[in-house]
Design a protein around this nucleic acid. Sequence first.
DNA 1: CTGAAAGCGCTTACAG
DNA 2: CTGAAAGCGCTTACAG
Lengths: 351, 351
Amino acid sequence: MKGIRQLAEHLDISIGTVSRALNGKPDVNEETRRRVLVAAEELGYVANQSGRSLRQGTTNVIGLMIESSKETTENGDNFFLGLTGGLQSVLSRHKLDLIMLPCPSDEDPHEYLKRMVARRVVDAMIISATQRIDKRIDLLSRTKIPFVTLGRSASGSNYPWIDLDFDGVANSAVDRLVAHGHRRIAIAAPSNDINLGFIFLDGYRHALERHGIAFDPSLVIRVKSSEQGGYQAAHEILLLEDRPTAVILIYELMAIGLYRRLTEAGVIPGRDLAVIGFREEPRAKFLQPTLTCFRMSLPDLGVELAETLLATMPAYSHFYPEGARNCIWPLELVPGESDGFHLGNNGQRRQ
Amino acid sequence: MKGIRQLAEHLDISIGTVSRALNGKPDVNEETRRRVLVAAEELGYVANQSGRSLRQGTTNVIGLMIESSKETTENGDNFFLGLTGGLQSVLSRHKLDLIMLPCPSDEDPHEYLKRMVARRVVDAMIISATQRIDKRIDLLSRTKIPFVTLGRSASGSNYPWIDLDFDGVANSAVDRLVAHGHRRIAIAAPSNDINLGFIFLDGYRHALERHGIAFDPSLVIRVKSSEQGGYQAAHEILLLEDRPTAVILIYELMAIGLYRRLTEAGVIPGRDLAVIGFREEPRAKFLQPTLTCFRMSLPDLGVELAETLLATMPAYSHFYPEGARNCIWPLELVPGESDGFHLGNNGQRRQ
DNA sequence: CTGAAAGCGCTTACAG
DNA sequence: CTGAAAGCGCTTACAG
């Protein structure tokens, strides 16, 4: 089966009627519609997307841009695959398809996005890993293509975003540690320009302030967002003269490398150094002592992202009357042993 | 900037010349070409993909279908992201873009593929997770869309595929275990219809045969391809009356669950039960005792997949004169402690 | 309820 | 070397 023309010929009716029947337009005789649907199914006809898109001006495809940096792939980040289910559950209600657009690691993300947008392969975009200054946001705003970002940025203004509650994480982690007597609390923050590092740092400073603890820049350890980064962070902490008694990590995989370096040095997490990890991660699940970290639902976040995106699209916004919310996505503390909270202040196990 | 018409008007030349200049056709005055390229860059013009595709009959997009089953995403499989770099390094040579098509978990993969193919959103497809009987292969063959599968199947005939060397893994794992005195060797195989389970089982049976060991069906433990599956496998092994002394796993994440269950039972891998894992995985890297497993390069596999695919596409096959090879992708043994090989046959550490 | 026709944005023979 | 025109496969006013 080639095109709608062949199908129409086979049924001996006009292509206009075939098209209307297939697209569920109301003004079609029900018997005609039935015949068309049966024949289409039989002959395996599905409308050519380029023809549709060109005529309609929409592709019915939503793009999820993935930055497949070496770091991400080496560390096996399953974050995006975790989002797709939730995204699709919403998009499929509107017959929209989701495609993932992996930006080659040797291509500039901005250039890549520009190309994809200009070619009009998608009706809307979801981007993530926002930088503090992120030209992609200006680009998307300028071209007026609907989009939502996972992650805030200092770029743009009044654009739809959703972000994790880094502030909340910083607060509850610091509170928890301070309640246990810690005053020297380090953080391992990403060394690149990704915005979450800045947001977390802010939250951390404010939390310290609330407790009347002076901010010490030497306790902000900047490392790569990876296992290796965690290893490096532990290494630097061990070298500090006035060593911190606690550390908060800002990337899920850091804990693994950090544990490794600590273990090499005979430093036991939870006993000798309190550790609070970031997002709960299957891979960090088997660390001993168990890691105190934060839990969130990736599929639910996917749903939220999709709904926020659709709320910005004229053709769908009436389904989502709340409009595009700038949502701070909550994380829930999962207590483990790594912050020594199960021990009393004297280091003995609580009863 | 909207379309080629606006760009042509702005330059005061015809759209045909603009198109030819942009597409690098030879018969264009170099000065004209320069002006066109400059103006396009300036005004951010990029050809609308639907227009191009409709006219040319090709999309210049290659699709990588992803099955995002719950198992896969929950377990955070980074397999596909690991492939993209290699795939893109080849595809970009030909100005082809890679998109990932995640099949919703509630949609039948065959129906999903059918829809994507019929809509002509891609010029060619890469599919994976082939089943023993996989209708997708017949579908793709029938519709004559170029494709390559990652994984063999009993379906179809003479189609391009690449698969991991399960036979080689089975052989070298069994050989290694037998050399160490094991005669009762279990395998933990996937319980679904995925073809690799059958291929591995065959390899395992032949390897046993070579060593004159009778095949015992009770030693084939069928579980899910996940951490949980590994846990379940260990559980079932522990319940066996005539317990095996060794087990070979056929999915990378099983080792983690298996270790957990063994540890609960006080059974130490390498000492009380020899364990050989499948693909080396960052997450399994920190298991103690270290896991004996098999290493492969995902990026290189991506390159191979892309080249095999292009060899089947008329427009590109002359670049890849070797044609579409049915390639068995090798894996290399990475010795660890989990199979007790570092110990002598008497259980003492070797010198 | 159906058909004939226009036109979405492009590329590519064809003519000059 | 350039322009005018056809046509890729569809959807959608418009007319009947």
